[in-house]
């Protein structure tokens, strides 16, 4: 890399509804390996946010540690960012979300950060239905430490070091369904036509949205014997449905698709593919994930969605006003208020 980003963009680039061009959603030049799937995910995030006219200053990007967790530097340079401790991004996200529910929360994690060191936090953030989009950039190996197998590596899969993985893999989508996540999707970094609408839907989902994105590690885990390679994923990918995200303002005709209404007025249009389950049915979704696993397929698309469940703030009945907007009197109600709380607890 010569570490340059030319200032020019295509002359026909037009600003979006709020006056920003696509360039306004970009970040620094990636320092990941050339060809890393993660860069494609960053590009998909840029595209989704630009097309959805997300105000960049109202987004908080949170990440843990790993190649994946470096990527928030490479998109949405105008947004808030927090690169946290390994596997602890959900705690930081929880704190931020409790303090200010007005921001859009975007967590970026990897298979190590989520399924190994961060598995505990990952499970509990789903239980709490925190209103965030959680993206796993899943490459089945620890790229940053030279490619050891990660907890999502399939049995028998080999990285370029040549030894087959012997431990049973954690399937983040299966786990999420089991624990009660309200939006579970899987996609592939090499398929933006699928990934971009999923990101848009996930950002609008009123609760915890997980997208497990297979994102090949070109340097350590892109050999023919790997089940997380570009080739393998393409050959074994099967889509449960075709997702189209429709913003609130857009009009669309009836075409037999399932319309999932979002509380903010937007709609996720789902076109079920033949022989696939209804993504509003959790049990069917869980069964589909398991069945695909047994067939050796990578089941992608929007696997499960439930927009009716209360999110963390609703469950806790916390204030709708961000803490920063409350004055001292509201934040420190004094001894009498404390007494009242304590009396309630006796």
């Amino acid at each position: 890399m010569s570490y340059i980003i030319p200032r020019f963009r295509h002359p026909c680039t037009v600003p979006n509804d709020i006056g920003y061009t696509r360039q306004d959603y970009e970040g620094a030049l990636s320092t990941l390996c050339a060809g890393c799937g993660h860069d494609s995910i960053s590009a998909a995030l840029v595209q989704a946010c630009y097309e959805m006219s997300v105000a960049p200053h109202l987004v908080a990007k949170l990440s843990g540690i790993g190649c994946s967790s470096k990527t928030p530097a490479y998109f949405l340079r105008q947004s808030h960012g927090f690169n946290s401790v390994h596997g602890r991004m959900p705690s930081v996200a929880t704190g931020a979300y409790l303090a200010n529910r007005d921001l859009t929360y975007l967590g970026v994690s990897g298979d190590g950060d989520t399924a190994s060191i961060g598995l505990g936090q990952f499970a509990h953030v789903m239980r709490r239905n925190l209103n965030m989009l959680y993206i796993i950039e899943n490459n089945g190996c620890y790229g940053l430490t030279k490619g050891q197998d990660s907890a999502t590596a399939d049995v028998g899969s080999k990285t370029k070091h040549g030894q087959a993985n012997v431990f049973s893999p954690i399937d983040p989508a299966g786990l999420a369904l089991n624990i009660g996540a309200t939006f579970v999707a899987r996609s592939f970094s090499g398929d933006k036509a699928q990934l971009v609408p999923l990101i848009k839907a996930g950002l609008h989902h009123p609760g915890f949205a997980l997208i497990d994105v297979i994102s090949p590690c070109v340097t350590f885990n892109n050999i023919p014997a790997s089940t997380k390679s570009y080739t393998y994923t393409r050959e074994h990918m099967t889509a449960a449905d075709v997702v189209d995200f429709v913003p609130a303002a857009a009009k669309y005709g009836a075409d037999g698709a399932i319309d999932v209404k979002m509380p903010d007025g937007a709609t996720v249009k789902l076109r079920r593919l033949p022989d696939h389950h209804d993504p509003r049915n959790r049990a069917a979704a869980a069964a589909a994930v398991l069945a695909a696993q047994e067939r050796g397929e990578v089941l992608t698309g929007l696997i499960y969605i439930d927009t009716g469940r209360p999110d963390l703030h609703a469950m806790l009945e916390t204030t709708e006003t961000p803490l920063r907007a409350l004055d001292e009197k509201a934040l420190c109600p004094g001894a009498r208020a404390l007494d009242a709380v304590n009396r309630n607890a006796r």
Binding site: T13, K192, Y230
Partner: peptide, 15 residues
């Protein structure tokens, strides 16, 4: 080419 999309993603002119 392994169709990783890297060139398409990085091209400033979306060419």
């Amino acid at each position: 080419c392994i169709e990783c999309d890297a060139c398409a993603d990085v091209c400033p002119m979306s060419a």
